[in-house]
Structures are given as structure tokens and as C-alpha cells.
Nucleic acid binder design. Structure first.
Length: 447
RNA sequence: GCCGGGGUGGCCGAGCGGUCUAAGGCGGCGGGCUGCAGACCCGUUAUUCCCGGGUUCGAAUCCCGGCCCCGGCUCCA
């Protein structure tokens, strides 16, 4: 998985979390294409003669990696994760229907192609002109196709490859069909939302729509389509030939998943994102500010009184304003960038104003506000590492109290030694006129 | 060639007809925080939104022309 895939998954995660925040019951289906050319090629490379017996290890590995990355990026689990190899029967049935109704035909080699000319608006969705497509087709059509734009629903068996039996011979399903069959099985048609990277618009999504029209008689496969802008590197699309692919695994060695999520969130999902480590570094920095505000709230929560405070009202109304503006931004075509800036300005309120009046707010008010702050952050995939173990908190507070006494006694050299030691350990203290606040480097905490 | 998406400060990136002398972040600079520090705070950092026309009382935002970049048309998130 590279940084482009991760952007798409991250965006959909935020989208789903937003819908759930709004109280909607969301069913999310993420398909796994666990057999295709790429996988088989890989298997051939790795296993050679043993390929037929072991090819499935490849998708298994990819899927494991996928879940590992989702975990690190705080991407919530989908409701269903259908795999192609577990839905072969459904696909065969779909193909039979399509052939029966004349939307598809069996080629001499046993492949089955979808006949694009049977769909009147074919090309409209992606804004492609069929005639020009044919004229500009760069790849010579496969022998059994009636029309170069026809696409495979079923690929006939080739020596060495795994296969499934069908009325028209052995083979395996084609990509465009898989998604339609699996998604509609778990969600019904039309889907409310469907999408992916912008590069899937044509031919993949166009073909999906064609299949859905033919198979289910619907106007469109989905009510709403979402296409996430592509990620580029130094202005160019990531590709194997340019050798500029940035795997998420590499990024996560140096940076937290949260920093990457924040980085993604700072650009609107439809815009292209030119990936850079400098940008990611900025996000990392930004994230620290967000965490500092959180930790100060946590500190206030611990020390605040149970009685209502005179500034409770102000605090609560600030929080309400945050929630309202934050959600408003997301409701405007999921403007995560604006949402981040709302969160940031609230964080600034905390670190510039609130922390100077600890005696004027109540525990309950601070806690409620902190919870909201976290909850909103989590829609964006950040602020997941908010808990600090109690024993560690007590330990740090004890050290800080001791240091404060040293400062009162003006024994600054020892106080400074303590501070620099804490800094080394990833604990950052800030002295203010009312008290000393601290925050901790999340990478120092194991979750 | 055909079809899309873009070009906003030192950088990243919002804004998409008035509230824009353009959000927010990062960086820089100046100052504050009754020592110092700072993953703290405050102030400051684009009279200007690729260029040229036009529409409008009013444009970064709409229209026309040009330049440049990226992507799709082939597996691709």
C-alpha cells in the first residue's frame, strides 16, 4: 500500500465517521480483490512451479498488511470485507444472466466480455467519447473482443493459473464485475455512496455502472460518487516506472499514523496532494500543538474543583461553537482542512486563555469539553492517543512539584537539570504564571 | 489528439461574486511569560490571488483568450 491508497482509505474513514457522528447507521463494504494479474505475476515470481499451490499466500500477506496499516492510521473496520475468491458463484451467476440477456458474449477462448454497445450512455459518466476512445485506443484489442472497449467479465484459464469451472470453461473473474457483485450483495443497489481514487473513473467506474445497468436495471450503481484526488510526488503521479512510489510502511517508520492523517486532512479530498516529507513534518509539528492543548485540558480536569466555576459558561459555549463550526465545515463537501483550522483555534483558546484560570472552571465542564475535543479529532483520525497511565501521571506530577519548589527557592540550576532530563524523556514542561503544564511525546507511549 | 483537474505569501494550503487589505498550519522576525527555556503566548510576515481582456456598483471568485503544471484515455487508489 502506498501513500495514495492510504489517502483514499483515510478519506473514506473520515467520511464514514462523520456520517456516524451525525447519527446515521452506516454499513461499509471494502472489497478485497484477492486474485488478479498482479497477484498471479507476483506468485509466479516468488513461487515458480509451486505457484498453483501457494499463490493465495500473496493476497493473504497483502490483506495482513492492509489491516496493520489501517490500525496504525486509525481507520475503523468496515462492516464487511468480501473477497473475490469467496464469491465466485455469485459472479458466475451474474455473468450467466448478462450473457442470457445479451449484454455479454462468450469469446472463442472461453473468456466472457461485456458488450459495451448495449449500454446507450456508455462513456457519459466519465465524460469519454466512445468513438474517440476507439480511435485513440493504444492497446491492440484482445482477439476475442468484438469491440476494443469491451471488457472482460471472465478471463479464460491460462496454464499455471488457478481456475474455477463454469459453463463456458475454466477461468477467473474480471475486476470490474467483482466490485459490483460483491457491493450489491451486501448493500443492495443502488449504493448510497461509492468511489475510490480519481484514476478509477475510467474505465473501472464506468464499467461498473454499465454492469449495474445491465444486471439490475438501475440508472446508476450509486446515488453519489466520491473520487479522491491523486497523490503526486514532486508533481508527478507515483508509478513503478518512475520509481517514486512511497509505501506507507516507510512513512510510518518515521512518522505516526496520526501525523499522516492530519497531513491528509489538511488538503481537501478532491484536490491533488503533492506528497512531501517536509509537509508531513509540518503536520507532525501541528499535531503536537493539538496534543499540548489536550494535555493541558487533562491537567485542568485533574486539578479543577467539583463546584461550578464562573467561567464554565464561557468554556462550554466555546466548545459548542467549535462543534458547530467543525461539523459545518465537514458538511460542506467534507472540508477537513477547515475542520482542522477550527480545532486548532479551539486549541489556541485553551493554551492562551483557559490555562490561566484553572480555579474558574469546574471538573465536569473541562471533562465534557475535552471529550468533545477528542471526539471531533477522531473523526479526522487524530487524537487517538489521549490516555496517559495514572501511575505515569502521578510520577510526572511529583517530579514537577519538586521542580517547582526548587524554582521557588531559586535553585534554578537543579530545576533546569530536571527539566532537560524530562525533555530528553519526551516530557515537555511549560511554566506559566499560574502553574506548570506539561505534555508528553506520544511516540514515547506504547499503545 | 480527445476528456478532466489545477495555478493563491518563503513553503503547505483554505476561500469559489461583497463580511478578502485572503482562514489555518509550517518557517522567519520582534516581543511576552516577576530567572532561563519552550512542542507556551502575543504581534508581525500576500493591498494581493499565473498573464491579458471582459461582465458587474463590486472578482482570487463569473466569462473569453493565452501560458504553465498534473491526471485519464492501458493495470492503477
Amino acid at each position: 500500500m502506498h501513500v495514495g491508497h492510504a489517502r483514499t482509505y483515510s478519506f473514506f474513514d473520515t467520511f464514514v465517521k462523520l456520517l456516524r457522528y451525525l447519527g446515521l447507521d452506516v454499513v461499509l463494504v471494502v472489497n478485497f480483490t484477492d486474485i488478479d494479474d498482479k497477484i498471479l505475476n507476483r506468485a509466479r515470481e516468488e513461487f515458480g512451479q509451486d505457484m498453483l499451490r501457494r499463490w493465495h499466500e500473496i493476497p493473504e500477506r497483502y490483506i495482513r498488511e492492509f489491516f496493520d496499516i489501517c490500525n496504525k492510521l486509525n481507520i475503523q473496520n468496515a462492516t464487511y470485507y468480501p473477497k473475490v475468491t469467496e464469491h465466485i458463484n455469485d459472479m458466475v451467476k451474474a455473468i450467466e444472466e448478462l450473457v442470457e440477456r445479451g449484454f455479454a458474449y462468450v469469446a472463442p477462448d472461453g473468456s466472457v466480455y461485456f458488450d459495451v454497445t448495449k449500454i446507450q450512455d456508455y462513456g457519459k459518466f466519465s465524460g469519454q467519447d466512445i468513438d474517440k476512445l476507439i480511435a485513440g485506443a493504444r492497446v491492440e484489442p484482445e482477439p476475442g473482443k468484438r469491440n476494443p472497449l469491451d471488457f472482460a467479465l471472465w478471463k479464460s484459464w491460462k496454464p499455471g493459473e488457478p481456475w474455477w469451472d463454469t459453463p463456458w470453461g475454466p477461468g477467473r473473474p474480471g475486476w470490474h464485475l467483482e466490485c459490483v457483485v460483491m457491493a450489491s450483495k451486501y448493500l443492495g443497489v443502488p449504493l448510497d455512496f461509492h468511489g475510490g481514487g480519481l484514476d478509477l473513473v475510467f474505465p473501472h467506474h464506468e464499467n461498473e455502472i454499465a454492469i449495474a445497468k445491465a444486471l439490475y436495471g438501475v440508472e446508476n450503481l450509486a446515488l453519489y460518487w466520491i473520487h479522491v484526488g491523486l497523490v503526486t510526488v514532486r508533481g508527478e503521479k507515483m508509478s513503478k516506472s518512475l520509481k517514486n512510489i512511497i509505501p506507507v510502511e516507510d512513512v510510518l517508520k518515521k512518522h505516526s499514523g496520526e501525523a499522516l492523517r492530519l497531513y491528509y486532512a489538511m488538503t481537501h479530498y478532491r484536490k491533488p496532494l503533492d506528497f512531501s516529507f517536509e509537509g508531513l513534518e509540518q503536520a507532525e509539528q501541528h499535531l503536537k500543538t493539538l496534543y499540548a492543548a489536550h494535555d493541558y485540558l487533562l491537567e485542568l480536569e485533574r486539578s479543577a474543583k467539583d463546584e461550578p466555576g464562573e467561567k464554565d459558561q464561557e468554556l462550554v459555549s466555546k466548545a459548542q461553537e467549535l462543534e458547530q463550526k467543525f461539523i459545518e465545515a465537514l458538511l460542506d463537501d467534507v472540508d477537513t482542512s477547515r475542520a482542522v483550522s477550527e480545532l486548532t483555534s479551539f486549541a489556541r483558546y485553551v493554551t492562551s486563555t483557559l490555562i490561566y484560570m484553572p480555579e474558574k472552571v469546574s471538573k465536569a465542564a473541562v471533562q465534557a469539553v475535552r471529550m468533545l475535543y477528542i471526539e471531533l479529532g477522531r473523526i479526522l483520525g487524530i487524537l487517538y492517543r489521549t490516555d496517559i497511565p495514572d501511575w505515569l501521571v502521578s510520577l510526572i506530577e511529583t517530579i514537577i512539584e519538586t521542580r517547582s519548589r526548587l524554582r521557588q527557592l531559586k535553585i534554578f540550576d537543579i530545576a533546569d537539570q530536571v527539566r532537560s532530563k524530562l525533555t530528553e524523556l519526551g516530557i515537555y514542561v511549560t511554566d506559566t504564571r499560574v502553574r506548570t503544564y506539561w505534555t508528553i511525546d506520544r511516540s514515547k507511549l506504547v499503545y
